[in-house]
């Protein structure tokens, strides 16, 4: 799948591959050994953050699991 940053797709692919293996073989099985993908994530993340800034995507300061929600009226 493509990244929002045109130049980040290859970095994303490498990271995704590492993550999926770790997620299936370690994390889901309760193995708490250190995440082997952090270096790949750092490279990918730096690239994506640059693209997000350039495209002015408004994600700054958005709370985790927390968009403001109005209560349903019914």
């Amino acid at each position: 799948m493509n990244s929002v940053g045109e130049g980040c797709t290859e970095l994303k692919r490498e990271y995704d591959q590492c993550f999926n293996r770790w997620f299936a073989e370690k994390f889901l099985k309760g193995d708490r050994s250190a995440d082997p993908c952090s270096e790949l994530f750092h490279k990918y993340h730096t690239c994506v953050q640059k693209a997000i800034k350039e495209k002015d995507i408004p994600i700054e300061g958005v709370e985790f699991m927390g968009p403001s929600r109005e209560k349903p009226d019914s």
Partner: peptide, 14 residues
């Protein structure tokens, strides 16, 4: 069209 992970963390309670 595009998909990215922009934040990821394992919490102390895994």
């Amino acid at each position: 069209l595009t998909e990215d992970i922009i934040f990821r963390e394992v919490t102390p309670d895994n």
